[in-house]
Computed example of a mutant assay.
Amino acid sequence: MASTSIVDFEKLNWIEPPVMGRQALRDVKKSIDGTFRDFTRENGEWIEAIFDPLKWFLLWLEDVFLATPWPIFMLAAAALAYLGSRSIKLALGVVAALFLIGWLDMWEDTMTTLAMVSVATIMCIVIGIPIGIWMSRSDRVQGAIVPILDLMQTIPAFVYLIPVVMLLGIGKAPALLAVLVYAIPPIVRLTNLGIRLVDKEVLEAADAFGASQRERLWGVQIPLALPNIFAGVNQTIMMALGMVVIAAMIGGSGLGTPVLRAISNQYLALGVFNGLAIVAIAIIFDRVSQAYGKRLQKHREGGHGV
């Protein structure tokens, strides 16, 4: 009876698609691969040329960071941390973290990572905030863009590395593009959310005073939405740092490269130290941006109360 049931199961054809269906699926895959391959061959050069200015800016910023003497860089980083957080403890923590990174011979890789994260964050802000504003002004636009953001946040990073590498090859430009695609959704979402959460009574008051659409946006909505926008910037930075190791696989260099080397050669100390350096940078950015966002929130609430 057992053998009969097995034979009957093998005769059933519901586990795999029919032969014609499998052949059609293979044809579709080959068609997609061939079309994209032809597209990259015909348009790869001018697509690479589009990203040349971005690559130049990244290399320039990286050279600036590397050329800056470490005491000056540490003091500048501590000053920026204090201006953002108004916390001497946090500023001293920045100095201590950077000193340890230099003492453990990870300074150059850290500067490379900081340059990539900085450029990626700037690009996310430049691109993401206008898109968020656009979404906040139209429910139809929001309905069209939200599924794209969902796809960008849920698709595995290795999947969208494939078309990036096929278009741009291996190097800093494709690594930066991968980081940008991975890190931009939070700032878009939170910019849209922050503007939509502005109190309608405040907007009605602005309209009563005769404010135009532009004045209402830049004078009322954007200032009141700044805490949410800075929360989006914070999340964007965290996601960019989380992408460092994966970006190193396609030429991103920085702290991700030693981590990959440690994985390949089972160097525990190398991987742990460079991983902790990434964590330290993430904590610094997170604490400073959160402290600045809280200060901004208190300022807005105090101004609104007056």
Rank of each mutant, 00 (worst) to 15 (best):
P227R: 01
K30M: 07
G93Y: 11
I246Q: 05
G275P: 03
G169M: 09
L190C: 05
A262T: 00
V117M: 06
P147A: 13
D139A: 07
L255T: 00
A208E: 01
K172Y: 04
E42P: 00
T110K: 00
D150E: 04
A291K: 09
D8S: 00
Q142G: 03
T191G: 00
Q221I: 09
Y267I: 02
V146P: 05
D199M: 07
S138I: 11
F209V: 08
E10L: 15
N274F: 01
A178L: 14
M123S: 08
A211H: 02
T40N: 12
P18W: 12
L167A: 14
G303F: 07
R86I: 07
G302M: 12
T35K: 10
V233K: 04
K55Y: 04
L226W: 11
G132M: 00
G242H: 00
V126A: 15
A81L: 09
Q221L: 13
R86Y: 14
G293I: 01
F73E: 06
F51P: 00
W103N: 13
Q266C: 06
A175M: 12
Y82M: 11
D109C: 02
A49I: 04
V181C: 07
D27E: 13
G210E: 09
T4N: 11
D286R: 09
Y182R: 06
I122M: 10
I15E: 02
L149Y: 12
A240W: 07
G303W: 07
F158H: 09
S85I: 12
V181F: 15
I32S: 03
D199R: 10
G251D: 10
V245F: 07
M20H: 09
G169C: 04
S136D: 07
G254T: 08
W60Q: 01
T4L: 13
A91H: 03
L270W: 14
V164S: 08
M243K: 06
G84L: 11
K89F: 11
Y292E: 01
T35Y: 08
V245L: 02
G143I: 08
C124N: 08
A144I: 04
F51C: 03
R137L: 03
R137Y: 00
Q266Y: 14
E201D: 14
K200D: 03
Q142A: 05
F65R: 06
K11G: 06
A247Y: 10
I170F: 12
G128P: 02
N274E: 01
R140P: 02
E42H: 15
D27L: 15
G275V: 04
P258G: 02
A175V: 06
F99Q: 03
F36E: 05
K200G: 11
M239S: 06
K200Q: 08
T236W: 13
A97D: 05
L193I: 11
W134F: 06
Q297C: 00
Y182V: 10
N234K: 14
I281P: 05
L260H: 03
P156V: 11
L193D: 11
V146T: 13
M123R: 05
W60D: 04
E45A: 10
W218I: 12
L104R: 13
V28S: 14
Q235G: 09
V245Q: 02
N274V: 04
W218E: 00
P174M: 01
R189E: 00
L226K: 13
A231W: 01
P147F: 13
T110N: 07
W60H: 03
N13E: 12
I145R: 10
G44M: 13
F73I: 12
T121Q: 01
G194D: 01
E204D: 14
R295S: 09
M74Y: 01
